[in-house]
Computed example of a mutant assay.
Amino acid sequence: MAVDLDEFKHPSWLTAAGTGIGYAIILAVLTVALFIVPWLVFAAL
């Protein structure tokens, strides 16, 4: 079964990838802001 990779060049795939990457970045920033920063502040006390 041959897979035609040209079907993945549709703009909807770019939108889906951008959404996933954006979600991951926001999740990483929130994790740092809500867990890592307070941990560093309390560890410094």
Rank of each mutant, 00 (worst) to 15 (best):
M1S: 07
M1R: 14
M1L: 11
M1N: 13
M1A: 10
M1P: 12
A2N: 11
V3A: 15
V3H: 10
V3D: 05
V3P: 08
V3M: 12
V3T: 06
D4Y: 04
D4Q: 11
D4N: 15
L5D: 00
L5R: 10
L5C: 01
D6C: 05
D6A: 13
D6F: 08
D6G: 11
D6N: 15
E7G: 02
E7Y: 12
E7F: 12
E7A: 12
F8R: 05
F8G: 02
K9M: 02
H10S: 08
H10K: 08
P11G: 01
S12C: 03
S12Y: 03
S12D: 11
W13Q: 06
W13I: 02
W13N: 13
W13M: 10
T15W: 01
A16V: 02
A16M: 10
A16F: 09
A17P: 01
A17T: 07
A17D: 02
G18M: 09
G18W: 07
G18S: 10
G18A: 07
T19N: 14
T19A: 15
G20N: 13
G20Y: 04
G20R: 11
G20H: 07
I21A: 12
G22H: 10
G22A: 13
G22W: 07
Y23M: 12
Y23H: 07
Y23P: 00
Y23A: 13
A24K: 05
A24W: 02
A24S: 10
A24R: 03
A24V: 01
I25R: 13
I25C: 14
I25S: 12
L27E: 08
A28K: 14
V29S: 08
V29Q: 12
V29W: 15
L30P: 03
L30W: 15
T31C: 12
T31N: 11
T31P: 04
T31M: 13
T31V: 09
V32C: 08
V32Q: 01
V32Y: 14
V32S: 01
A33K: 11
L34I: 10
L34Y: 14
L34R: 13
F35R: 11
F35W: 15
I36R: 06
I36W: 09
I36C: 05
V37P: 06
V37K: 15
V37N: 05
V37L: 15
V37G: 02
P38L: 09
P38G: 04
P38H: 03
P38W: 01
W39T: 11
W39V: 07
L40Y: 06
L40W: 09
L40I: 03
L40R: 09
V41T: 05
V41I: 06
V41K: 10
V41H: 02
V41N: 08
V41M: 09
F42H: 09
A43E: 03
A43R: 13
A44T: 05
A44R: 04
A44K: 04
L45I: 02
L45M: 12
